[in-house]
Design a protein around this nucleic acid. Structure first.
Lengths: 183, 183
DNA sequence: TTAAATGCAAAGACTTTGCTGTTAT
DNA sequence: ATAACAGCAAAGTCTTTGCATTTAA
């Protein structure tokens, strides 16, 4: 969906820069986090940061490369790989595994949430809920552990009717990645 | 640990066979499941089935190959890969992903349980608990889904004291696979 | 007898890396 | 000026597969 910010670059010295190849890439939340983490903001990195910030789904490297390339062709997949790795180490990005062999990414700043994968369509829906972490923390405790992190993925099928989600739910549907989720 | 059954092959026609190369492999629970699923019981498959049945941990293909080869050298990794894939399709094996790039396996017949990965040692401890599935089923329902399956992994650290697990817990510690789980 | 299974090596899919040139600071 | 970064292609890791051969049923 990529709704770009498109603010005009009125003041070149105000920190807001753009990629030499296209004028549509501006500073983004993730680009700012990069700076805060002492990373150099190259044109490529700025584009990738922009793509990541705009992403409302969980793109894999190939998809990120596709989107970034569309904005600036001077980007190689190696750079995308290196960038997501770096950003993951910095805690800016979170790597996900929804099955299908390739890693998928999303901004950490999106807050903590879980994923439910529609087994029929491959679509990923996010949801927030405090109960799992409470339960799992208790379980870990009973086993003599302190919970450091956890992973939950639900694989499910849309129920017949289309009863919409309850109020506490924020459901962001993924774009389908022609996923190779075959048997 | 591999505590082999070692029953002497007194009656060659009684269905209990062994690998031509070594006398220690006999029918195993998983071998029986193979037969029930109409699979041919070759010497290699019998050995692999035996190894899987004896495994108390979650070996990856390389480890399975190592253990199987120790019992019968006429086994190739390709066969191990093909076998675990086949057995997974038949529902006999469950594939796990504990992070680290390689798939790990365990017998499905071990029943439903979850895993807690010790982030310090890499050891995997199993535990049973009915609450997560109840909670997650409810959550899925609220989102308009019917839960098909789910995945839960806890990453945790042993708590200072060694307060043992509560009564409802069956903790099976994994052998450490020199896991490359470092970031 | 014959479909299934195996071995071996080649190939695939995804990811990392060595090296050299470029660039943000 | 210089450490970080990027591109490219080679290499690495895990897994699958084509093909000729063997084998269980």
């Amino acid at each position: 969906m990529v709704v770009s910010t498109k603010s005009v670059d009125r003041n070149p010295r105000a920190g807001s820069r753009r990629s030499p190849a296209s004028g549509i890439v501006d500073d983004s939340p993730i680009a700012r986090l990069c700076v805060q983490n002492g990373l150099k903001m190259t044109g490529q990195r700025r584009v990738i940061a922009h793509v990541l910030s705009e992403a409302e789904d969980h793109p894999d490297v190939e998809e990120l490369y596709r989107r970034a390339s569309a904005l600036d062709s001077r980007i190689s997949v190696a750079t995308v790989y290196r960038t997501v790795r770096l950003l993951e180490e910095k805690g800016i990005l979170a790597r996900r595994d929804f099955g299908g062999g390739r890693a998928r990414y999303e901004a950490s700043e999106n807050g903590h949430h879980y994923h439910i994968i529609d087994v029929d369509s491959g679509r990923v829906v996010e949801f927030e809920n405090d109960e799992p972490v409470i339960l799992l923390t208790q379980i870990a405790e009973k086993l003599g552990f302190d919970l450091v992190s956890h992973r939950i993925e639900l694989f499910a099928r849309r129920r017949g009717g289309s009863r919409s989600a309850s109020s506490e739910t924020k459901a962001k549907s993924d774009s389908i990645n022609t996923e190779t989720s075959g048997s």
